[in-house]
Design a binder for these strands. Structure first.
Length: 524
DNA sequence: GTCCCTTTGAAGGTC
DNA sequence: GACCTTCAAAGGGAC
C-alpha cells in the first residue's frame, strides 16, 4: 500500500485526528488472502484506512492503489452504486470521497445525499437480511443471496417517514442543484458563531467566505455557504436539515430558539433574552458548539430513516439497537467510510473552533448529568466490572471486553475461547424479516426488562432486559459467547499473545451476531 | 416540559 | 494505562 502521507500530513494539523479511528468490526476473513492479512498488525490496518484518505487528500484520487475503480466524480458524496451482480459490495466501486467540486480539498464532504439513495441502492441492502441475516462483507466475496423482497422494496419506496421541509433531503447533495436548495435554506451553522465575548475566536477563518449573517442558528453545524463558497459538499452532521420536531423539542434546540430570538447571527453569544433562568443565561453566554459526530453517529443519522421505514419500530432506543448491530455488521470498508467522514468532521470542527473542547459541553444538560451522577454505581456501567468479576469469580486482574463495555479479557471471551477450541458451530441467523422478528423481541424486552439478568455482562447497560433480548437475537441464550471472528492466534491485532486474551480489545470483540457463513470457528 | 432510553465513538478526567 | 463519564442524534414514552 502506498503511503503517501508522512510528515506532510502535519501540515493540515489535523490528520492525526484520525489516529483513533478504527474499524472495530472484524469479519470472518475466511479466504486465503484475508487469512494472510489477519497476521497483519491492527495498527497497520488502521493506518491503512488513514493512508487511504490521506493519500486521497493529497493526490486527489481516492484510495490510490487500493481501489482500482476510480471515482465517477459524482457530486453525490458517498454515493453507492449497487453492484450489478451482488448489489452489495458497491462500496468498493465508488470513490468514497470524491470532492463535489472536483477538487482535492480535504474539507468534509461527508454524508451528502445518502438519504436520497434510490431503493435497492447501497446500504439499503443491509436490510433484507437485516441484522440477523446480514450478508457477508463485500470483501469476502461470497455472493450474497440477498435480494430486496417486495416488502422491503415497498418499504423503501414509501414516502419518507420524516419528510423534510420543502421536500428536500436532510442532507444536501451539494450538487449544483442541491447546493441551490441548500442555499435556499441558507442554513446557519449549527455551531453558532462565537464572539470575542464567548471566549472563542471567530470560528470561521477569514479565508472562508462566510458571512456572519448566514450563521444565525446553531441548528446548522456549518453553513452551506461554507460548502458552497468553497465548492464543497458538507457532511450531514455539519449541514443538518432544517429544524425537525426533535430539534425543537430537544434541549439543544432550546438553545437554538434562544439564539433565534436573541439574534440572527454573530450576536449568538448573547444570553437568551427571554430566559428568566440565570443558569440558562450563563450557559447561553457561551454558544453551545456541538461535538462533531462520530462515525457511528453519522451512520445512525443516515440509516435511521431507512430502518424506521422498514420496521414498525418507532422508538429511537430500539432503532438504535438495530443500528448498533447493523453497524457491527458493516464491512470494514463500509465502516471505514464513516470513520473517515467522522475524521473529516472533526478536522473541520477543529479548524472552525480551535479552542473548543468536548469538555466545554460538559454539563450542558446539567440536570441529566446530575441525575446520572446521582445514580448508584450499580445503575451505571462503572460498576459492571465489579459485578462481572463477582458473578464469574474473576480475580481482580480479569477484565472484560466490549460486551461488558470494558476492554480486555472477560468471561465472555473466555467462553468464546472454550467454544472455539471445540469448533463450535456458530448460531445461524434465521433469514427472515428482521424487523418483524425484532418487533417481537423488542416488545418482549420491554416487558422483560425486569426479568433481565442485570449481572450478565452483556446486560450491564441501563436496560438489561433490552440488551438481553437483543443479545438473544444475536445468539441464543444457550449458546456460548460468540467466538472472535479471528480464530485464536490469528487475530491481526494479536501482537504478542497467541491467544491474545490480554490483547483483546473492544476493537476485536464483535458484539454483533455472527453472520451466516460464519458457522464454524476453527482453532489452530 | 423534561428526561430517559439506546447505540458507538471521541475525548477529557481520574486514579 | 485502565477506567469512568459525558456528549453527540433521534424520537417515542414516561413522568
Amino acid at each position: 500500500m502506498p503511503h503517501a502521507h508522512s510528515s506532510s500530513a502535519a501540515s493540515s494539523g489535523g490528520d492525526d485526528l484520525g489516529s483513533t479511528d478504527e474499524v472495530k468490526v472484524f469479519k470472518d476473513e475466511g479466504d486465503g488472502e484475508d487469512e494472510k492479512r489477519s497476521s497483519e498488525n491492527l495498527l497497520e490496518e488502521k493506518s491503512s484506512l488513514i493512508d487511504w484518505t490521506e493519500s486521497e487528500e493529497k493526490s486527489g484520487e481516492p484510495y490510490p492503489g487500493k481501489l482500482s475503480v476510480k471515482s465517477d466524480l459524482s457530486p453525490v458524496f458517498g454515493k453507492f452504486e449497487p453492484h450489478p451482480a451482488t448489489g452489495f459490495n458497491m462500496g468498493y466501486l465508488m470513490a468514497p470521497y470524491p470532492y463535489p467540486n472536483g477538487g482535492a480539498h480535504p474539507l468534509p464532504v461527508s454524508m451528502t445525499g445518502k438519504m436520497g439513495l434510490p431503493a435497492g441502492g447501497g446500504l439499503s441492502l443491509f436490510c433484507p437480511g437485516g441484522e440477523l441475516g446480514q450478508p457477508p462483507p463485500a470483501h469476502m466475496g461470497i455472493p450474497p443471496p440477498y435480494q430486496l423482497d417486495s416488502k422491503l422494496a415497498a418499504g423503501l419506496a414509501r414516502t419518507p417517514m420524516y419528510p423534510f421541509p420543502g421536500g428536500t433531503y436532510p442532507y444536501p447533495m451539494l450538487s449544483p442543484e442541491m447546493s441551490q436548495v441548500a442555499a435556499s435554506w441558507h442554513t446557519p451553522t449549527m455551531y453558532p458563531i462565537s464572539s470575542a465575548a464567548s471566549g472563542f475566536r471567530s470560528p470561521y477563518p477569514t479565508s472562508l467566505p462566510i458571512s456572519s449573517s448566514s450563521l444565525s442558528s446553531e441548528l446548522y453545524r456549518f453553513s452551506p455557504t461554507l460548502g458552497g463558497g468553497l465548492g464543497l459538499g458538507l457532511g450531514p452532521a455539519l449541514v443538518p436539515p432544517p429544524p425537525s420536531k426533535s430539534d425543537l423539542d430537544s434541549h439543544h434546540s432550546r438553545y437554538a430558539r434562544s439564539l433565534e430570538k436573541g439574534s440572527s447571527s454573530s450576536s449568538s453569544d448573547k444570553p437568551s433574552d427571554s430566559s428568566a433562568n440565570s443558569n440558562n443565561k450563563e450557559q447561553n453566554k457561551k454558544p453551545h458548539i456541538k461535538k462533531p459526530l462520530n462515525a457511528f453517529m453519522l451512520y445512525m443519522k443516515e440509516m435511521r430513516a431507512k430502518v424506521v421505514a422498514e420496521c414498525t419500530l418507532k422508538e429511537s432506543a430500539a432503532i438504535n439497537q438495530i443500528l448498533g448491530r447493523r453497524w457491527h455488521s458493516l464491512s470494514r470498508e463500509e465502516q471505514a467510510k464513516y470513520y473517515e467522514k467522522a475524521r473529516q468532521e472533526r478536522q473541520l470542527h477543529m479548524q472552525l473552533y480551535p479552542g473548543w473542547s468536548a469538555r466545554d459541553n460538559y454539563g450542558y444538560g446539567s440536570k441529566k448529568k446530575k441525575r446520572k451522577k446521582d445514580r448508584s454505581p450499580a445503575e451505571l456501567g462503572g460498576n459492571n466490572l465489579k459485578k462481572c468479576r463477582a458473578r464469574y469469580g474473576l480475580d481482580q486482574q480479569s477484565q472484560w471486553c466490549k460486551p461488558c463495555r470494558r476492554k480486555k479479557k472477560c468471561v465472555r471471551y473466555m467462553e468464546a475461547l472454550a467454544a472455539a477450541s471445540g469448533t463450535v458451530p456458530m448460531p445461524m441467523a434465521t433469514p427472515q424479516s428482521p424487523c418483524s422478528e425484532e418487533d417481537v423481541k423488542l416488545e418482549e424486552m420491554s416487558d422483560a426488562s425486569s426479568d433481565g439478568d442485570a449481572d450478565t455482562p452483556l446486560n450491564s447497560a441501563s436496560s438489561p432486559g433490552a440488551l438481553s433480548a437483543l443479545s438473544s437475537l444475536a445468539s441464543p441464550a444457550s449458546e456460548p459467547a460468540p467466538a472472535p471472528r479471528h480464530p485464536v492466534g490469528t487475530n491481526p491485532r494479536d501482537a504478542n499473545n497467541p491467544l491474545s486474551v490480554g490483547q483483546l480489545t473492544s476493537q476485536s470483540w464483535p458484539r454483533a451476531a455472527p453472520r451466516p457463513g460464519h458457522e464454524v470457528i476453527s482453532v489452530s
